[in-house]
Amino acid sequence: MIPRNARFWTGAAAVIVLAVIVSLSRANEYFFFAGFVVLQSVVLATAWNILGGYAGYVNFGTAAFFGIGAYMAVVVINATGAPLAVQILAGAAVSGLLGLGTGLLTMRLRGIFFSIATVAIIFIAETLITNWRYVGGATGIQLLRPPLMEPFGSYTRMLFVVMAVLAVIAVSIARYIETSWIGRGLQAIRDTEEAAECSGVPTLKLKLFACTVSGALMGAAGAPLPMYLSFLEPASSFSLNYSVAALAGAIIGGTSHWLGPVIGAILLASVQQIVTVTIPGEINVLVVGVLLVVFVVAAPDGVLGLLRKLRGKLRRPRAPAESPS
């Protein structure tokens, strides 16, 4: 157990150090622009997986939590001008509360009913923001980037590092949940909720916990968005594309292990970035939908499932497959 932990934390530290080094290098500015988006989708897919993958509650509402996180940052900027760290904390806190509220409202709902309710959260959040003048209403709000912080050469480079840190935090939280008793409880809920409850699992509390943590991480992912774009408007902040991307990233990578959403999100977002550069238009969005459907149909356990199968075949060519443990 201990060497595995050590390996994880070494890897996590390495990712952050690497992000800082790259951001101080002379790499092309576009790299950070794209890298920010890739890391952002890692946070979103990881956050989605805590509720959707571990507990089996399919959340279509990622865009709501993400958008509210972004708009909380705007509120903080407007009201106090506090720095990015405060904006992120505020975004996480409010989206976490929204997650808790969603959980409380939908605690009796399962399957598609839960999912449809989360779509409703997006539209209600978007309508509220659209009608709120303070944060710019329907037309949006222009924002001024604060002066640069040393030693970063550009604001985008700094945001890239911030998003890398958020990604590491999100993955660490997901990994902790997965490997602790909480993860086993969520897995039991996913398999059969009634038997879980009768095995002593406080199903309602665990679901609320998962909703809150998942929502908070999505909000944290959204909070740097206003500064990244230096402009924010409701229609694109609450775009269903975020919901599809988060869900697709987790499912394409594999939902049973924390590494799945990381692989899936990096794969998906990178492919999208490449497609965006090479083919203009909406093809990059189409890629997400097509990959999602292909994986759901042909490789339900995602990239991780495929790798596991491949490894099994290489190890023992003819013996029956053993369960992974």
Partner: peptide, 17 residues
């Protein structure tokens, strides 16, 4: 049963909770 778990893990749920 908790179908996605092994038989042993099925018992670990009540043991842990």
């Amino acid at each position: 049963p908790f179908g996605s778990m092994s038989v042993l893990e099925n018992l670990q749920v009540p043991l842990e909770y």
